[in-house]
């Protein structure tokens, strides 16, 4: 019998490991395109921000650059990944704990993987479809407020759509059975997402001269980082909770071991 605490603790642990893995991937495949984009930005006369100490004198009016690029790409990157990873892992743990037993005969491991997969899709992949990540040197600093609002609005729509889909899907399962209820739930989520993709404003701030291959390399690195983040959360959470449940089950259900 697992408690919510068991799920939260293992989710946090899974998230911490996932953050570490995402840091490694981000550092290895993500930093080269980020560095290349910053180099372009500087060569271009550079606008204001985070180009390291080199620009301190010229950018005196711009709050200054307080963190060197060396720190940003190592400890800074690690901080962001570990904090976000641990937070998402904890959430995934709690959601998995509450989902167990509420979706028919889904196993503990299957539930953990499904929750992590849903996290990847709703919190990253769907917003990516309309507002894909951009490297430094792409994006007009004056529209950051607008773009941030759009991004978080899309995140909110995605999460609410997923919640709606799960809620309706569960209600339908008694009538339709698990399989068709799940299909209906996915269909509802798809409708919400497609409508949002059609309705939400779009923007394109990639400068015409920005290398397409570099943009691709950066976005691919971003996808890889998030795939690793959620993949590790799912697999580790599945493994740890399953082990714990297996360790605690025999005492309660002697029937299980009597077969052999």
């Amino acid at each position: 019998m697992l408690t919510l605490r068991d799920f939260l603790v293992r989710g946090l642990l899974a998230g911490l490991l996932a953050g570490a893995a995402a840091f490694v991937v981000g550092y290895v495949v993500g930093e080269p395109p980020v560095a290349a984009a910053i180099a372009l930005e500087e060569a271009d006369g550079g606008h204001t921000h985070d180009t390291g100490e080199a620009h301190e004198e010229e950018d005196a009016e711009d709050a200054g650059t307080e963190v060197s690029r060396d720190l940003q790409s190592t400890l800074g990157l690690a901080t962001g990944m570990l904090v976000l990873g641990t937070a998402m892992g904890g959430l995934a743990g709690i959601v998995t704990g509450l989902a167990v037993g509420r979706f028919g005969r889904a196993s503990l491991r299957g539930t953990a993987l499904a929750v992590a997969g849903a996290g990847f899709v709703t919190l990253y992949a769907v917003p990516f479809l309309i507002y894909p990540p951009n490297p430094p040197a792409v994006g007009d600093g004056n529209t950051i407020g607008y773009r941030t609002a759009l991004y978080f609005a899309m995140l909110a729509i995605s999460v609410l759509g997923a919640a709606l889909a799960v809620s309706i899907g569960r209600n339908l399962s008694a009538k339709l059975g698990g399989w068709y209820a799940a299909l209906a739930g996915v269909g509802i989520y798809l409708v919400v997402v497609l409508v949002a993709l059609g309705v939400m404003p779009r923007y394109d701030e990639v400068p015409a001269e920005f290398p397409a291959s570099l943009l691709y390399e950066f976005r691919l690195a971003s996808v890889l980082t998030q795939v690793v983040l959620w993949g590790v959360i799912g697999v580790v959470l599945a493994e740890l909770t399953h082990r714990l449940a297996s360790a605690r089950t025999p005492a309660k259900t002697p029937v299980a071991s009597s077969t052999r």
């Binding site: 981000g26 980020v34 921000h49 985070d50 709050a63 901080t79 990540p133 941030t148 980082t225």
Partner: peptide, 28 residues
Amino acid sequence: QGATSVFAGNAVHEWVHDARHLLGFPCH
């Protein structure tokens, strides 16, 4: 310290700058 700031300055933004970009958030 992108669209809005709780703390003045740019240090938080810069510290998590690379993670923010790679995780897919609008950065600047």
